[in-house]
Amino acid sequence: MKRRDFITATALAAAFGLAGKPVYNVLASKDALASKTGKRLAMVIDLKKFEGNSEMMNKCVDACHSMHNVPDIEGAKEEVKWIWPEPFEHAFLEQNNQFIPENIQNNPILIMCNHCDNPPCVGVCPPKATWKRAEDGVVMMDWHRCIGCRYCMAACPYGSRSFNWRDPRPKIKNITANFPTRSKGVVEKCTFCDERIVKGLEPACVVASKMYEPEAMVFGDLNDDKSNIRKILSENYSIRRKPELSTQPEVYYLI
């Protein structure tokens, strides 16, 4: 072997070696679970406590939508919603067994962004206008960066994202001054009330539900083993929406 060939071969081998490690890591990766450092914010929704209490459910939705300047648009086509009631057969369409109890069949379920540990919407967003916040796992949105390509909506398996098909501002009943309104052409969704979390407050929907039931909605940190949410999840069996997709949704439902 000539010296030149030897050096080339060595360089190639080194390059493959360097590339090998990340490739191996990708191949060997397990289901993405949120990091064990920092907070891992999650929510538990107790369906039994919502049964027959559509007033509480509506109050949760209203609290969110009025606080976040969510426009009130008629018709399913251009609707914008952050949290809303959905029948069991649609919220959990893969788990809609034939002979389910009437109380489950007839009571709608609150659904929202699941703040997945492995959010498909984040990876597809071309300008990084949506991202998973490292310190607490909230899936955030930058409404000033969003280009309105709606790739995140195609990628979300939960239908949790809304697009502003027209200027939303004329459709907002009472504008909340300390929260931004959106412009036409951007995507929006629930952000677990990130603006309240930083002040140490709970999400608006959770607060609204507490006016009726203390533990219908419980919000907390799954990385804190002494938290109430961890206690509830270890004492009750919970279900999540489409767990088979490995998105690791962080909204848990007690049935």
């Binding site: 990876g123 597809v124 967003c125 071309p126 300008p127 990084k128 206008a129 960066r145 969003c146 280009i147 309105g148 390509c149 709606r150 697009f163 502003n164 412009s183 036409k184 052409g185 951007v186 995507v187």
Partner: peptide
């Protein structure tokens, strides 16, 4: 197809 066509440049300023 873009909702905010003038912001397309964001795709190259902050590429994912």
């Amino acid at each position: 197809d873009m909702g905010q066509p003038l912001r397309v440049v964001n795709m190259f300023l902050h590429p994912q």
